[in-house]
Nucleic acid binder design. Sequence first.
DNA 1: TGCACCACTTACCGATCGGTAGGTGTTTGA
DNA 2: TCAAACACCTACCGATCGGTAAGTGGTGCA
Lengths: 201, 201
Amino acid sequence: MSDTTRERLLVAARGLFAERGFDGVSIALIASELGITKQALLHHFGSKEKLYGEVLKRISDEFAELRADRVMAEWQPVRALQSYFAKLIPTGPDQTQSCRLLMRELLDNHRRAETAQNWYLSDFLEGLIAMVQRVPGWESATRMQALAFAYQIFGSINYFAVSGPTRLAILGKGEAAELNAAFGPQLDTLIETGLANPPAQ
Amino acid sequence: MSDTTRERLLVAARGLFAERGFDGVSIALIASELGITKQALLHHFGSKEKLYGEVLKRISDEFAELRADRVMAEWQPVRALQSYFAKLIPTGPDQTQSCRLLMRELLDNHRRAETAQNWYLSDFLEGLIAMVQRVPGWESATRMQALAFAYQIFGSINYFAVSGPTRLAILGKGEAAELNAAFGPQLDTLIETGLANPPAQ
DNA sequence: TGCACCACTTACCGATCGGTAGGTGTTTGA
DNA sequence: TCAAACACCTACCGATCGGTAAGTGGTGCA
């Protein structure tokens, strides 16, 4: 099921788009990752833009699914948000991608909202806003304040999502491994303290 | 002084790179912003990569200058950080750029650190780390923890740096104008509360 | 047996990319 | 006065971009 060419293309595309951005990747490069030609890719997706759209839709849908989870719905809002954001934490070496891609898309949204009709993340962001506003003390926060909080968490996660080589380049060697394992709990704490300080009216 | 062609090119390049990313901008586009040809641009900067490097060096230097400011050095660490980050807040409609460009560069640092010898932001980041570690309670924080905090602030600023059209697209109309003016003080509060919660040992 | 469908190919296309070569006209300074 | 330096130009270059056209071989089904 998951080793379909189409599926493998989506995975490869997500990784490359996350690492280099939409303009930094050619469809030929994505296709060559599987040893096929770019025309095979176009056969499956029609255009580069559509492929990109599907990659982002996948991510957005994953979170919508998570949000609809009955078990999670019964949790406290803070706990639910922790679990929500935990989905963005890189668990494996190749799972760094979703968060980076989200960050990129948020940076590009300005241009996209202007030129194209495809602004893929509105569902995802609306979901986040709603979840933040369920937190005690945040009920009357504006959507922007809720989003600003979410952005902070994104920023934090993204930092940890920076892949190994970079950390080694910027920081020392010992420091790099140090926080990888401990990041999950640390992010939970971060979300807790952040939500414990709702914006002033 | 500031209306030299070279200077105007740097400004135009910063804006376009911030908005579309390195790969999303052609040197011909940047040059056409001033009504000149791309060859005139190449005459001044030699290559696209060098132009990009100068744009980033400018930003990095601005912050180094700010850090070296004697007046600021006498401030409390928290106050100094507030002033430091305040430099990233978009003050005018065309001043949205530095923060967005920084965010992009932080996303791309992985690739840059790998392939190129030009990782332009290390000074800037080292400065940030040092300033965070001067804050009471953060002296023993690791460099990574300090950077993670900085990333959160970046995220928050970047959200507000998203230009008007997008906010209108995502959110309602009234909400967009609402926080623009009030953001300065709000960011100060954010930094304060963030720094008041240093990471656990 | 035959035919539609599928996954994928080679062979192109025009446009645009970053960059080079070789100018032209103006300014400047000895 | 004259030549060097400067700021910019037109005219290219090979490479690569996203995308189209027209197949090719295999598989499944009537």
